[in-house]
Amino acid sequence: MKILPAISESSSVFSYNRFGVAGKPRRVNIVITLREALTSEGFEPPFLLVGHSLGGLYAN
């Protein structure tokens, strides 16, 4: 996460770890939860999402 401070100097940054890894939540719930988190923090679409591993699929 060393890059986040550098990026945050020129852009808004929101770092997120999803809930329920072991419970295998449905993809729709993960997307809804992320949208709600972004909205509650004052972010508005369009979003540029960057995901790692399975997070890349959810970002897509």
Rank of each mutant, 00 (worst) to 15 (best):
P25N: 09
S15G: 01
I30D: 10
F14A: 13
V13L: 14
F47L: 02
A59Y: 01
P25M: 10
I3Q: 11
S11T: 07
L4P: 01
N60V: 11
G42F: 03
P25V: 04
S40N: 15
S53T: 06
L49W: 10
V13I: 15
V31Y: 02
S10H: 14
V50G: 01
A59W: 05
A22Y: 07
L4D: 03
F43S: 03
E36L: 10
M1E: 12
I7Q: 02
Y16M: 05
R27C: 02
S12D: 13
L57N: 12
Y16N: 00
R27T: 11
L48K: 09
I32V: 14
P45K: 12
P46N: 08
S15M: 05
V31R: 12
R26H: 13
N17M: 09
P25H: 07
Y16T: 04
S8N: 12
S15E: 11
E9K: 15
S40E: 14
E36K: 12
S53G: 09
V28F: 05
S53R: 03
E36H: 09
S10L: 10
F19W: 06
N17I: 08
S40K: 15
E44V: 15
K24S: 13
R35L: 15
L54A: 12
P46C: 06
R27G: 03
V50F: 15
L34K: 00
E36Q: 12
Y16E: 02
S53A: 11
L54G: 06
Y58H: 13
P25L: 11
E36F: 00
L34S: 01
H52M: 06
N60G: 14
S40F: 04
G42W: 03
P46Q: 13
Y58S: 07
